[in-house]
């Protein structure tokens, strides 16, 4: 498995609350090769961000339990010491978060915030890190970089802040960029610019990218493969085109139908009836069963693994799969 950059096996995350441990995410399995772009899609509460943050163990340690394996080039991230983890973060795997209003430190200037990872991971001195920070601002197309580098986050617009976040993330030329809802808090026009920037950077730097979004349309334009999550589990994994041609899971089908189509003239957009169950009230069998239009008698109490569906696809549903073989 050395050609795999990232190999996530049976990842499960639970959080401690006043009412005990609550499972947020389970049964997450996926791999990522060099240069791959994987999209993780799901609605709020599906566990996509929880999954993303677990890859770098960014949850608060004292009330989070992460099980399974996150193999980064063969080494289990979940077993790394704190020092090894800090070496990995920001240098080999970098992250861009949603809501750039809050993800940049308001009291530190841009030069410091970009330069910090260069000083940590590449041993650069202050002056060299600063010069490189200006170059990086140029790369993410912030005009007048030499001057803006002295600015503080509140002096930048939302789009510019996200560009700065991206500059921070790519500073050490990571092999993997995890972008967690990178455009959710931004205007639609700015959103398109940021996605274009990410696409270009991915090509220029040869990074692998994991893009997390609730927006299936956005993901489909960016990723090669998509993992759809529902109620804390992946429920379908497929190449983007195949997923759009024929979604195998009724939930994916519902998501795709809910994307507005400019050519058709509808008064109301189709929706999926019901809402995502809370982590403590997840059905025992198929978690989508209560909302599923194709529900069968045994759906509610049969726990399904991801089933092999051919063509590099897998699905947690028997509707379109006749040969019921679990994915190895």
């Amino acid at each position: 498995m050395t050609d795999k950059l990232l190999d996530v096996r049976d990842l499960a995350v639970s959080f401690r609350t006043d009412r005990g441990w609550i499972p947020a995410v389970d049964s997450v399995n996926f791999t990522l090769g060099e240069g791959d772009a994987l999209g993780i899609v799901g609605e709020s509460g599906s566990g996509k961000s929880v999954t993303a943050l677990s890859l770098l163990r960014l949850h608060a340690e004292r009330n989070t339990r992460i099980e399974g394996q996150v193999l980064w080039r063969g080494r289990d991230v979940l077993k790394l010491s704190r020092g090894q983890l800090q070496q990995l973060r920001g240098s080999e795997i970098a992250m861009v978060f949603q809501d750039p209003i809050h993800t940049l430190n308001p009291v530190l200037n841009i030069a410091d915030q970009i330069g910090e990872s260069l000083r940590i991971h590449q041993g650069m001195t202050g002056a060299a890190a600063r010069r490189r920070a200006i170059e990086l601002l140029d790369t993410v197309r912030i005009p007048d970089a030499a001057r803006r580098v002295n600015d503080y986050p509140h002096q930048l617009s939302g789009g510019q802040r996200q560009r700065v976040m991206i500059a921070i993330a790519i500073a050490c030329q990571p092999k993997l960029l995890i972008a967690d809802e990178p455009t959710t808090a931004l205007d639609v026009t700015v959103q398109a610019q940021i996605m274009e920037l990410l696409r270009q950077l991915r090509a220029d730097l040869g990074m692998s990218v994991i893009l997390i979004s609730h927006d299936l349309g956005l993901v489909s334009e960016f990723a090669d493969r998509v993992m759809v999550m529902y109620a804390g589990q992946p429920i379908e994994m497929a190449p983007v085109d195949a997923l759009f041609d024929l979604p195998l899971h009724p939930y994916s089908d519902g998501l795709i139908s809910a994307i507005p189509d400019l050519d058709s003239d509808l008064d109301r957009l189709p929706t999926i009836a019901g809402s995502i169950p809370e982590p403590t009230r997840r059905p025992a069998g198929c978690r989508f069963a209560p909302r599923c239009p194709h529900q069968k008698a045994d759906c509610r109490n049969t726990v399904l693994p991801m089933l092999e569906a051919g063509g590099g696809r897998a699905v947690r549903c028997t509707l379109h799969v006749t040969d019921k073989r679990a994915v190895a």
Binding site: G90, F97, H102, T103, E116, S117
Partner: peptide
């Protein structure tokens, strides 16, 4: 706050 998580994600 989110920016503290950002710092951790940078390897600080």
């Amino acid at each position: 706050q989110d920016y503290v998580r950002t710092a951790r994600a940078k390897g600080v």
